[in-house]
Design a protein around this nucleic acid. Structure first.
Lengths: 349, 349
DNA sequence: TTGAAAGCGCTAACAC
DNA sequence: GTGTTAGCGCTTTCAA
């Protein structure tokens, strides 16, 4: 690595002070009333030396890093990586750069990541918070650290979410309208509000349709050792005796894992079991029949989160800012009976 | 934000110099021969003040940021986001943190990102390089900037890749053994070595099996406006007259897009068309029939990339380090004829 | 118009 | 054993 040129190099070569160079290169020559000729010389030398400011030094001085930390449950989950992509683009447009990290829904890891990012001097955090992280989050809020929650939330914070109750209610209602009345839901075993709301929406829809909820219908699985839990749960719930005829999955990962199990268990979708999931996935499109899902605008989530974060950084927003973005049910063949005699064209039968 | 405590604060309160505090808090009290009592006092006050070192200041001083920049084509592509997750974990273990960004296979954007990361002082870069970025990459290598390429490569650099020729050869050979002899390939229209190798493997396998290659079988699509290109290409190649009976997709995104088109076109897989893809995807598992694919160990890619990068940072490795990781063909039903009378159990027919 | 200098927080070479 | 000090590269106040 050849040594980088610094302000001082330019100043010395020109026989001026570093202050002048700094002013000019930050386009503050008007404010500092630098002489035209000096401005010209500095500009020219800087260009010919390909001067690049040292961002670290600037950060040390300013206390700002133009950096945003993003913490999601798992960046390899397409739902989060898609949001990450939007956040990346939006941040870049505004000259911010992004650290990504995964909490694995683990409160300890979350705390560690938050601390690490703060020590690194990120200007803001965008977090999909996990269970038992409320204290960490509250601490940040109290310190007035710029923070936006996504996907999940705690009351009183800045956040961007969907109306989970309504979305879940609609999904359940849709299954009922489609003729199902023994509808199960698989959700994460967590006290997080968004999950509880999804469950509440489901149960309320059942009730409003006079369907008596059966305890065995609500399956909650824990994030740890997920695949095994899902496998067991699906085996249980799909026995003929318990036999449910509709299923709502509270996240894409639950749906993907469950569908893999269902595939090998002889259950026909939607004939035996109508299916709706939250989130989206390529897998939902390629699965046959295509899976109905609750679509959240990932673009809106990412864009709004960055907007809010930057406004917080600039100190523009006052009270808690809470953004509820649209969620809409995309109905496809996994949740409605096919027309009689329909042939799925591309499968050998 | 309450003001952070600095070395100086501690030094002043204790009436010692910042140097001592620095030594102690960096566990260099032995080397600097600091008195036991002083050590104790410093440790205690630091703890009670919850002192956190300012990483920015340390970086300015050391010229190191403990930061790695990662540039992939698109972080929302599960292939890359899965690698990203591994990189994140491995980096974190070694106390590095990661910036992710997406080049969109665009050379200009790539250059911009590389420059930005360098200005930000990342200690190393891990890049899945795009077409026409060779000059940028060569420049970094010449400057001896720690750099590791993944997935794609230029000769003479540090990289982690699979044997693309062999993997493609095997995949093609597999289709031929499975009784296909009009085999198409869809690849990206790029001069990048990894793509050319995949194409070469395909063509060589045809040749070795005495199958005369037909120009129309090789479909190259450009990354821009991909969906449209794929749609058109699939429509063309699957007309009865041209009718191919096997298909190799050079990446997961090509396969996913193509399968979506195939689904709606009445083509039966594998009866009419046997399919193999590179990379992996949840969608390949949920598709029926499950898609055969060339599996690369994403773990090995990410882990090796971080290892190489850190060794470069530490100046441990000399000549170009090139790691070829295993790729293995996972054969599933999309590429082999089902047993007679087989019934796909879970689909209504 | 311009320059000197302080200081962001930390490290390390060099005295004492 | 302990302390001083000179920077790392930049911004910005204040004086000239």
């Amino acid at each position: 690595m050849n040594k980088k040129v610094s302000l001082k190099d330019i100043a010395e070569q020109l026989g001026v002070s570093t202050a002048l160079v700094s002013y000019v290169l930050n386009n503050k020559e008007r404010k500092a009333r630098v002489g035209d000729e000096t401005v010209r010389k500095i500009r020219q030398l800087a260009a010919s030396l390909d001067y690049q400011p040292n961002i670290i030094a600037r950060s040390l001085q300013s206390g700002k890093t133009n950096t945003i930390g993003v913490i999601v449950a798992d960046i390899s989950n397409p739902f989060f990586s898609s949001i990450a992509r939007i956040i990346e683009d939006e941040a870049m447009k505004r000259d911010y750069v992004v650290f990504f990290s995964s909490s694995d829904e683990d409160a300890d890891k979350s705390k560690q990541l938050i601390d690490m990012f703060i020590h690194r001097g990120v200007d803001a955090l965008i977090i999909a918070p996990s269970e038992n992280t409320e204290k960490q989050i509250r601490r940040l809020i109290k310190q007035r650290f710029p923070l936006v929650l996504i996907d999940r939330y705690f009351p009183g914070s800045d956040y961007v979410v969907i109306d989970n109750f309504q979305a879940s209610y609609n999904a359940t209602n849709h299954l009922i309208q489609a003729g199902r009345n023994r509808i199960a839901m698989m959700a994460y075993d967590t006290g997080m509000e968004h999950m509880k709301e999804r469950i509440r929406g489901y149960r309320t829809a059942l009730k409003d349709n006079n369907i008596r909820f059966d305890d065995s219908w609500l399956i909650t699985v824990s994030y740890q050792d997920l695949a095994r839990h899902v496998r067991k749960a699906i085996k249980n719930i799909t026995t003929p005796t318990l036999g449910v005829d509709g299923f709502i999955f509270a996240t894409n990962s639950l749906a993907v894992l469950s569908l893999k199990v269902l595939i090998s268990s002889g259950i026909r979708i939607p004939t035996h079991l109508a299916v709706v999931s939250f989130d989206e996935s390529d897998a939902f499109d390629l699965f046959y029949p295509p899976v109905s899902y609750v679509r959240q605008s990932l673009y809106d989530i990412g864009k709004s989160a960055v907007d809010l974060a930057l406004r917080r950084i600039k100190g523009e927003s006052k009270g808690p800012q809470q953004i509820v973005i649209d969620a809409r049910l995309v109905v496809r063949e996994s949740s409605i009976m096919p027309p009689p005699l329909s042939n799925s064209p591309h499968y050998n039968v």
